[in-house]
Design a binder for these strands. Structure first.
Length: 327
DNA sequence: TAAATTTGACCTAA
DNA sequence: TTAGGTCAAATTTA
């Protein structure tokens, strides 16, 4: 029953996202986009609340990593130098894991999840063909943001990046423009198709739209965090329901041979992940693994396409007929 | 010149 | 003793 409600909320979010996409034209009033974004957030908030309240009863893809070290570890506090090595490898509290499939293009855009990361280390990992890179939030010291992430190429498929996140961002994200710039189609792609001036104009329009979306997204998020004191436990329990994949040893195993089963997660989605982390007040106690085809050039700027969700008919008049839907 | 990255050394848990 | 995680000086980049 709760699962049906959850599906309903997620479906609603998907429908609203579709609607938002239709409103991404410059002619469309920005207020409408803002309202849509707010509603999308609200819808996902509800879904997450349900997930949180019934985390144990709904079959989702998640694991239970050791979170004590994340939540309580003094070692996570940069000011506590004496305890800096308290965290420990396999149970060190790396929570959300995102698997990013990259088909031959550069990883930079994919790794740009909307936050400023500073690489602070790299290690060769036993049994892994590729080194693991360690990143922490640029604002770790200036703002005390404790968010960190690990990035490592998958052993089995070098085109897949395994990104593990730890902690949440408490910093104010000050890199929105850069973030957007990396999510738009590359100019080289436009060059191949000619008609430079028009394509450049389209590019600028998309950038402008994205900026508006991002601003409203963050604005909406702020409202949410003000309203909800205990969001902390909501986002950590969130996972995408991917039915075609299987769970092995508590970890998600992606179908390596079928990218069509992957979620479509553009860097913007990754940013959304970050945004989710923004409203956490305790660390994740669940591992999230998302497989994603992430060719930057193929990903629409704000494409919240949750392809695994069943596409449902959506009445465009719904919003006008249900003005209260937004409030 | 400030910020970011690289990389060897160090620390700690297993 | 080993390996993962972090530090910090040196180096590179914008």
């Amino acid at each position: 029953m709760e699962k049906a409600m959850l599906l309903n909320e997620l479906t609603q979010g998907r429908e609203l996202t579709d609607l938002l996409r239709k409103h991404l034209h410059p002619s469309s009033p920005p207020e409408t986009r803002h309202l849509l974004l707010d509603k999308i957030l609200s819808s996902y908030d509800k879904a997450l609340s349900m997930l949180n309240s019934s985390a144990n009863s709904i079959s989702m893809v998640q694991t239970k990593p050791n979170v004590s070290s994340v939540q309580e570890s003094p070692g996570s506090d940069a000011s506590d130098k004496n305890a800096r090595f308290k965290k420990r490898k396999t149970c060190s509290g790396w929570s959300e894991q995102v698997r990013v499939c990259c088909s031959g293009t550069s990883f930079e855009g994919l790794l740009d999840d909307g936050y400023c990361w500073r690489k602070y280390g790299q290690k060769d990992i036993l049994g892994s063909n590729f080194p693991r890179a360690y990143y922490r939030c640029t604002h770790r010291y200036s703002q005390g943001c404790l968010a960190a992430k690990q990035v490592q190429k998958s052993n089995n498929d070098p085109t897949i990046l395994e990104v593990k996140y730890r902690g949440r961002h408490t910093c104010s994200r000050g890199r929105a423009s850069h973030f957007i710039a990396t999510t738009v189609p590359s100019t080289t792609e436009y060059k191949e198709k000619g008609d430079h001036s028009r394509q450049q104009q389209q590019l600028e329009e998309k950038q402008k739209q994205s900026k508006e979306v991002l601003v409203s997204f963050e604005t909406g998020l702020k409202v949410k965090t003000e309203d909800l004191d205990n969001r902390d436990d909501i986002f950590p329990s969130f996972s995408f329901p991917i039915e075609s994949e299987e769970v092995e040893n508590g970890l998600f195993v992606s179908p390596a041979t079928s990218e069509s089963n992957y979620f479509s997660v553009s860097p913007f989605h990754m940013g959304s992940f970050g945004l989710c982390q923004n409203v956490q007040t305790s660390e994740s106690d669940l591992t999230e693994i998302i497989s994603a085809p992430t060719s930057v050039t193929n990903s629409p700027i704000v494409d919240l396409d949750i392809s695994s969700l069943e596409k449902l008919e959506f009445d465009p008049s719904f919003l006008s007929d249900n003005p209260e839907f937004f409030y």
